[in-house]
Design a binder for these strands. Structure first.
Lengths: 173, 173
DNA sequence: AGTAATTGCTTAAAAGTTGAACCGTCGAAC
DNA sequence: GTTCGACGGTTCAACTTTTAAGCAATTACT
């Protein structure tokens, strides 16, 4: 079959997207590196944990929430654990499982650095978008995510990140 | 001043964006790694060169076009040079300058792998967007890029990537 | 129960990225 | 035409990411 090339408009949009995503990730990484001493992904680990029930999440659930591989997460959590902002606990109901827990110190880091982070995101993204554009951005991105995750490995060839599991909570009460 | 947190809609959009960009970069990297044996950025180096006059560009211009640091580009070009898809030439008019040139072999790689790449991009992004959404995506992303590059280092704190230079062409004719 | 396949997570080696320091021009002021 | 600051590009060490392989606990099957 003959290739369906991108139209001129699609090409412009695609290039704008690539440029924006590179610049944005770069700006955010730089800002967080300065003020929190960690890259964006690591900050996201803390942020995600802070919103989880009991501030804890199983490694695989955390990886799925963050859309990254378990391996990458292992590395990140190991580093954050050294910093003292995250602690690992074993999963009582599954001997293989490991649970990442946000420490008080981690929560403090987050609280201290969140304002600067939001300000950067605002300045780069939301301060110049209309409410309609915000809505459109969400719809577009949700669509992209679904297209990639939904088709069971046609867009993501080569198996992608094939994961699925039940969770494992363990509140003490 | 008290932090201007994100509204609920902005938060949803932001999270959707983060998820989509991670998944998308991952899907594209994987696809290109399989079919072209290189990550997305390296493919972009070849693609950008292929569109430049005389298929050549100065390192700094190439870095600026790709929105990456010179250092990162040096590394990429060194690898691509080893692969044989790019060659370096000295800049005649500026002894310091270095020019990256797309080789025939590089052009061939590009030609062979472009269809698969476009297909992936289509499948993940454009096949489920209306023409209006494509336009909106371009506007939104252009705005983000301008916000980051335009403010001379307020959004991108710590100096960012402060570059500016004149070009240096050298067609043999 | 006993074994095979699966799952959850980590590890190891190779590849890529970052940030600062470095080196050889270049340009402009004297 | 020297000298000094800026520029273009590379290099190095520290860090992060990737891919595949590994290990142990669990599940499914019989």
């Amino acid at each position: 079959m003959t290739t369906r090339w991108l139209t001129a408009e699609e090409q412009r949009a695609w290039r704008a997207y690539i440029a924006a995503s590179l610049l944005l990730e770069d700006a955010i990484d730089r800002q967080l590196q300065q003020e929190a001493g960690m890259p964006h992904l690591y900050y996201s680990v803390l942020a995600t944990l802070s919103e989880a029930p009991d501030r804890r999440l199983r490694m695989t659930d955390l990886a799925e929430a963050l859309k990254i591989t378990r391996s990458r997460l292992t590395y990140a959590v190991t580093r954050l654990e050294k910093d003292g902002s995250v602690r690992r606990e074993g999963c009582p109901s599954d001997g293989r499982g490991s649970i990442a827990v946000l420490t008080e110190e981690g929560a403090a880091v987050l609280e201290r650095t969140a304002p600067g982070h939001v300000e950067t995101v605002r300045g780069a993204v939301f301060d110049h978008l209309t409410p309609e554009q915000v809505g459109e951005l969400e719809r577009i991105c949700t669509g992209i995510a679904e297209a990639i995750q939904g088709d069971g490995g046609r867009a993501v060839r080569a198996g992608g990140l094939p994961w699925r599991r039940r969770s494992c909570s363990s509140s003490p009460g």
